[in-house]
Structures are given as C-alpha cells and as structure tokens.
C-alpha cells in the first residue's frame, strides 16, 4: 500500500524534535531529584525510569549539553511556522472556531494550530526560565522578573507537565484526524 510520506526532512525534524525534548525532560527530572522543587530535601523524587544521566552531574551534562541544540531547534521551528503562519500559526479566530464551530474538521484543524502555537510558547518559556537559572549573574534582570528563585524553579518545572499535556493532545488529535495513515506519513 502506497503511503504518501511527508518529505524526509519533515519526518527527520519531527523525530529529532521529539528526541531533543525527551533528553531535556529526562535530564531535567534528574536534576530535579537532586533537590526537589516541591519539598526540597524531604520532597518526592522521580523514578529512575524517567530520568536521564544517572546522577546530578550526568543529568547536568545532558541538560546543558543539549541546551544549545534545544534553542537552535526551537528557533528553526519558530522560523518555519512563521514562514507558514497562515496555515499553522493560531489566530484568535481559531479559539472561536474551536469552541463554537459545527464543522468538526474545522474545529480539529483549529485545535491543532492552537496546540502547535501553545507548544512554541511553552518551549520558549522553558528556554527563558532555564537561561535565567543558568546565568543568573549576567541575566539578573531576567531572573528578577520571576520573583524569587523558588518561583523561577516552579515556572521552569511547570513547562514539563504543560508540554506532556500538549504532546498527548497532539497525538490524540492527530490520530483522530488522520489515524494510522497520518501516523505513517509522519513517523514510519
């Protein structure tokens, strides 16, 4: 059966995005475990199953090693979306369509655009809060925007559950829109 695959580079970029995100989340949770954001030294930690790096120093290797790649990736992604902004970037009208339209296909399309755009906002936010903690001496004005150090940590961490929710929504929605054939177009 012939599947109309997406262009090779699209599929590679999609897989690469997923990999970079996985590395950043896994190593981020490893760093989290060294001193839980919630509860400090008495706080609950994440199981080793979802962490990357083995210990704090290893987690930092991965997190800071992939940091530049993550930023570059995000930049390319934003650039591509802006280039195709009328097709992919959400507008206020999408919220209206998503909430009110009777046309299901239109609603799903709007929902998808909203998810793409929200992902970029969340990832951009994770980059900004991450930089504010990585270079708090020179970027003191950035770190200062988030109130206390603890608030900064909470904001940075909160991008993980937000992204997980968006990725799940993205997967479910893609499945509803295109099912197996869409999955094959992008992933297989």
């Amino acid at each position: 059966m012939a599947v109309q695959h997406n262009p090779l580079w699209t599929r590679w970029f999609h897989a690469f995005d997923a990999l970079v995100l996985l590395v950043m989340v896994g190593s981020g949770l490893q760093i989290y475990n060294a001193n839980p954001v919630f509860g400090s030294r008495g706080g609950a930690t994440f199981p080793q199953l979802v962490t990357l790096g083995g210990w704090l120093a290893g987690g930092r290797y991965w997190h800071l090693g992939f940091m530049a790649l993550f930023a570059l990736n995000l930049g390319i992604w934003i650039g591509l979306l802006l280039q195709h902004r009328r097709r992919h970037l959400a507008q206020l009208a999408d919220v209206v369509t998503w909430r009110g339209s009777q046309n299901q296909a239109k609603r799903r399309y709007s929902a998808h655009r909203l998810i793409y755009t929200l992902m970029l906002v969340i990832l951009g936010f994770s980059l900004i809060t991450g930089l504010a903690m990585y270079k708090p001496v020179q970027l003191w004005w950035l770190s200062g925007l988030f109130g206390s150090w603890q608030m900064l940590r909470v904001f940075h961490f909160a991008t993980i559950p937000a992204m997980v929710a968006l990725v799940i929504s993205h997967g479910v929605l893609s499945w509803r829109i295109g099912g197996w054939s869409l999955l094959r177009k992008m992933a297989v």
Binding site: L22, G26, Q48, L49, V50, T51, L52, G53, G54, A57, G58, G59, R60, Y61, W62, L64, G65, F66, M67, A68
Partner: peptide, 21 residues
C-alpha cells in the same frame, strides 16, 4: 523504552559534556 534507554545512555553523558563544555 526510550526513557529506559536513558539508563544505557547515562554513560554517554560525559561525551555530550566534552563536546559542548
């Protein structure tokens, strides 16, 4: 399994660090 893969990938952290540090 990708996350589990983190366990075998743990050892490569130093290579990642050496490349970017």
């Amino acid at each position: 399994s990708l996350l589990l893969g983190g366990c075998w990938a743990d050892g490569y952290g130093e290579d990642v660090a050496n490349a970017t540090r």
